[in-house]
């Protein structure tokens, strides 16, 4: 595997993604969705007080990205993480194009790594689009007022912005772990429905698991734990244990899924 070969595969995959309507729609929804939400909050009297920072959405624009993050962690982030990763491999099965791309000058490992890199890059792009749009929508439509954190401390606009950025950054490992899970489902099942659907269903199931009483050890092993680890950034004093833990769990999921997916693809007979 060469770095140049890897870049070639990534550029080819991005060229293919750029031609797909689905991809454009996802990015568009990420970009304008928070504006619609912030606009709706601004125009109505009631606020979503039962969610974290929900009661502050009309008081500080920095509450908007945190509410969006809390909401997205339930199901939107697994969807964003899976929408490309869960389809990138199985699409070759759907179109019957494995034989076309495997009879070129790139190895299976190069194609695998290039596709995974593309899936990760797309997941990060979608996450960034959602985060940036949420922050901009909050500031433009609500305002850059100080934010009251989870401990009741008033954060300056600058400090609030930094913590919002840290909060969104903290879900990156979990998003990438979900992408790796989607890649594995896509490679293993050769089905885009399973590649996209299984991680989403798994995400919802894991979220439900965190709500029921169960052994703490099991809950700490769940990939979704990273979607709520950001609370530590918005507390005084800040605590980082859950973030570090989520990073470790996500890394284990990510590496495990990719190793298995790579092995399955390498050993697979194409077009039996």
């Amino acid at each position: 595997m060469t770095f140049r070969g890897l870049l070639t595969v990534v550029s080819v995959e991005w060229a293919k993604l750029a031609q797909q309507l689905k991809v454009r729609i996802v990015i568009l929804v990420c970009a304008i969705g928070p504006f619609a939400f912030a606009g709706a909050m601004r125009g109505q009297a009631s606020v979503p007080a039962d969610t974290l920072f929900g009661s502050s959405v009309t008081d500080s624009g920095f509450a908007i990205p945190l509410v969006v993050l809390g909401f997205a962690g339930l199901w939107a982030l697994p969807v964003l993480a899976s929408v490309v990763g869960g389809d990138l491999f199985s699409a070759e099965d759907r179109y019957g194009t494995w034989t076309t791309i495997l009879t070129r000058s790139r190895s299976r490992t190069e194609l695998f790594v290039g596709k995974v890199a593309t899936a990760f890059a797309f997941s990060l792009l979608a996450l960034f689009a959602l985060a940036a749009s949420s922050v901009i929508a909050g500031i433009l439509l609500i305002g850059a007022q100080p934010l009251v954190d989870l401990s009741g401390m008033l954060l300056s606009p600058r400090d609030a912005l930094v913590r919002v950025v840290l909060a969104w950054s903290s879900v990156v490992p979990s998003v990438l772990a979900f992408t790796a899970l989607a890649v594995l489902a896509s490679v293993w099942t050769q089905s885009s429905a399973a590649g996209i659907g299984l991680p989403v269903v798994a995400g919802l199931a894991l979220q439900l698991l965190t709500l029921i009483d169960g052994p703490e050890a099991i809950r700490r092993l769940l990939i979704t734990s990273g979607f709520s680890a950001w609370h530590g950034f918005l507390s005084e004093p800040s605590y980082y244990g859950p973030i570090v833990h989520a990073l470790v769990v996500s890394t284990v999921y990510l590496i495990g899924c990719l190793i298995v997916a790579h092995r399955v693809l390498r050993r697979r007979d194409i077009g039996r």
Binding site: Y95, T99, T100, R104, R106
Partner: peptide
């Protein structure tokens, strides 16, 4: 990768 200078397809080519 398929060695340089070698090419071909099986079944009906797909794109």
């Amino acid at each position: 990768p398929l060695p340089d200078g070698v090419a071909g397809f099986v079944d009906t080519p797909a794109f």
